[in-house]
Simulated assay, not measured.
Amino acid sequence: MQWDEVRTFAHDGRTLVTHIARGSDPRQFVLIHGIGVASTYFTRLAAELSRSGTVHVLELPGNGSAPEPPEVMSIEDSAALVAAYISAEGLDRPTVVGHSMGAQIVSDLALQHPGHVPRIVLIGAVVDPSAPTALGQGLRLAHDTLRETPSANRVVLTDYLRTGPRWYLKTLGPMMTYDLARTLPLLHADVLIIRGERDPISRGPWARTMADLAPRSRLVEIPGGAHVVQYTHPEEIAALIVDHARGGHSLPTGAADLG
């Protein structure tokens, strides 16, 4: 897709890159990627969401085209940087969406700033406690590539190459040690949890546990989707996000509402 604007944002010695798709509706969406990836795998979702508002796709420091920070950032550090961006842009109570590790960042953002982030969306959230090691997560990631479409694998690989393996490995520690299960019960935000029904990384029992832990939550599974479900099923995911932003509970055809 053609971005309307690409620019950098610096705060406290850390710089992120923002890709913006502007919509005519005043609604605002902020998209946060997972480990090692960047903006590319969000392009299809951003194109759909831009029909209903302005979309801000962030590349966190060290990922994609964003320069590496002086030191590795914790999940809490990343959440604080996203909060600084939202404040600097004057975004009024945006709907913030995180995929995979990005779901950790979005959750911590909602914890740090409950009044400014009323609705969040967690897609394929990690780390599933049934695979608590980096090796276990790596094996599940390899499994996921067998369930994704060729184009999804290609776009994820493109993002991985832009970020590079060194920064990926540096970021792995903060992701593996962040305890999402401790954060979720403390949230005041409305939480929409989405997973592809074939996702081997963020599995069904873990998704149901997250839905039970978050006080105000809803869990939806997308038929046929794997981990990168926002790329392979952008229309369904966008419809869910927009409906969540409006406070609704509609479902795209075939999706299963599990609570």
Rank of each mutant, 00 (worst) to 15 (best):
Gln112Gly: 11
His233Ser: 02
Leu122Lys: 00
Leu187Arg: 01
Tyr41Thr: 10
Arg208Trp: 11
Glu236Thr: 12
Ile222Glu: 00
Arg14His: 13
Lys170Trp: 02
Arg93Asp: 09
Arg218Ile: 02
Ser151Ala: 13
Asp108Asn: 11
Arg7Val: 03
Ile123Met: 06
Ala238Pro: 11
Glu5Cys: 08
Gln104Ile: 13
Ala110Lys: 14
Gly196Ala: 01
Asp128Tyr: 04
Ala125Trp: 03
Leu180Pro: 06
Leu219Thr: 10
Val220Cys: 02
Ile35Leu: 10
Leu213Ser: 03
Met1Pro: 14
Arg166Cys: 07
Val117Thr: 15
Pro205His: 06
Glu197Tyr: 12
Trp167Val: 14
Asp92Asn: 13
Ser151Asn: 05
Asp243Lys: 15
Met210Gly: 04
Ser78Pro: 00
Gly102Asn: 03
Glu236Met: 14
Pro26Met: 11
Arg166His: 14
Ala83Ser: 13
Gln137Arg: 07
Thr15Glu: 15
Glu5Lys: 15
Trp167Ala: 11
Arg51Trp: 00
Gly173Ala: 13
Pro150Glu: 07
Ser74Tyr: 08
Gly13Glu: 04
Met73His: 12
Leu258Trp: 15
Asp243Arg: 14
Ala79Thr: 07
Thr183Trp: 00
Tyr41Cys: 05
Pro185Tyr: 10
His56Trp: 15
Val96Asn: 02
Gly64Trp: 07
Glu236Val: 07
Thr8His: 15
Val17Lys: 09
Asp4Ser: 07
Glu76Lys: 09
Asp212Leu: 11
Leu141Asn: 09
Arg182Tyr: 08
Leu187Glu: 06
Leu109Tyr: 08
Leu172Cys: 11
Ala125Pro: 10
Leu213Ala: 07
Pro150Ala: 08
Ser250Gly: 13
Leu219Asp: 07
Leu169His: 10
Asp190Leu: 00
Gly62Tyr: 02
Phe29Ile: 01
Ser50Glu: 09
Pro26Ser: 14
His188Trp: 10
Val37Glu: 15
Leu157Phe: 10
His249Asn: 13
Arg7Met: 04
Ala211Glu: 05
Arg22Trp: 06
Leu186Tyr: 06
Arg147Asn: 09
Gln28Asp: 08
Thr232Ala: 11
Val242Thr: 11
Thr171Cys: 09
Leu258Cys: 15
